[in-house]
Write a protein that binds this DNA or RNA. Structure first.
Lengths: 202, 202
DNA sequence: GCGGAATGTTGCACGCTCTGCAAGTTTGCA
DNA sequence: TGCAAACTTGCAGAGCGTGCAACATTCCGC
């Protein structure tokens, strides 16, 4: 079934390290947790920790390095009849759905991340890594050129903002809101050109 | 004129450290420059370095910690007849103008930053610091509520994107483009709701 | 099963980052 | 001129992150 003992052990160790990091930081805060602490709880040496994650913050955030690039390949897989904005909204909705379904993992993850600026920064950086790839996919679809036109680069960047703000609001509602709905709200505002919302009658 | 010898010396030291950091990183790359190197070139002890900047990357980026908050106060100072998007565009245009006028500093700064992901990350984080303050100012102006409505938070975040992408494109054109014009281009796309641009007739 | 190749784990040594503390020095001000 | 406040510096120390070499485990063909 799974591809060999070795692969399974590696995955287990990785998850153990991520979970340990997450729990410890939730308990004590980022600064009060050392790499040694995390390694100890995950039952490996601190040297081994660095075989899995390049830094403490990476272990806490715990994203698979390939995850960010999923967005650009998902985008390319959307029907060509959709506008870029429609396609990105759909991609993010789907992603949001997946996150919301992992009820154990993502809320804990986001709670911890949201409480520490350096973790938020790392999460944003993770989005940023795939920005060029996504910009190229957008350029491809729209006949624009990365490095010449604003459009692909800007849209790729704004897409990251939309997801970030949606996640932030999800945390703020204590995960009572529907993440896909929050994503939709953000894209509604973006697609409309960010007009000042009508003032609610009081 | 300037307020005392002490203040002037502090400012001079700060600028010396920033310039030293910038030049050294431009010459050798970020990883090949240590805090000791920077301190030595600026003629202070490495301990003193940390009295001015909390880390190496901060010294290279070299932003005054109050700078990011300028955006939100400038925004609040714009006439209330402008829409939030119009006001932010105007604020950024003005800021872009100032940057472009410091012909010695900003191009070098941006060249160095653009070449190192961790510096880009730090610059983005600097924008992020003021995001809450800006969101509150936007909420104030539009009668929305931070933490409830998407609008203020999203717009504050997107504004950072617009500036970031404009700067990135400025670097990409080797500073031949007009930064205020690049800012305008970004806001044109945003205000229109990010529609796919018409394909150029070939 | 067996043995060698590939892969993973660990300890060690090292350089760098950043902080607190306790001098010593310079500036501000009456 | 002299005291108080502020700045600089060296030192000690904890933690991060990496290269290296030895050891252990898994894989795979036979």
């Amino acid at each position: 079934m799974t591809e060999g003992l070795r692969e399974r052990k590696k995955l287990a160790t990785r998850q153990a390290l991520h979970l340990a990091a997450l729990q410890l930081v939730a308990e004590r805060g980022l600064d009060a947790v050392s790499v040694d602490d995390i390694a100890e709880r995950a039952q490996v040496s601190s040297r081994t920790f660095f075989n899995y994650f390049p830094s403490k913050v990476d272990a806490v955030v715990g994203l698979d390095p390939t995850t960010p690039f999923q967005v650009s390949s998902d985008f390319s897989a959307r029907p060509a009849t959709e506008s870029p904005v429609q396609a990105l909204r759909a991609v993010q909705r789907a992603r949001a759905q997946e996150m919301a379904e992992e009820e154990e993992l993502w809320p804990l993850r986001m709670t911890v991340i949201d409480a520490h600026p350096s973790l938020v920064q790392r999460l944003i950086a993770a989005f940023g890594e795939a920005e060029l790839a996504l910009a190229e996919a957008i350029a491809e679809r729209t006949g624009t050129r990365v490095g010449v036109d604003v459009y692909p680069t800007l849209l790729a960047a704004v897409q990251g903002c939309a997801m970030r703000i949606s996640l932030q609001r999800w945390v703020a509602t204590d995960f009572t809101a529907s993440l896909p709905d929050l994503v939709d709200e953000a894209w509604d505002a973006l697609a409309a050109g960010l007009p000042a919302p009508p003032r609610a009658a009081t």
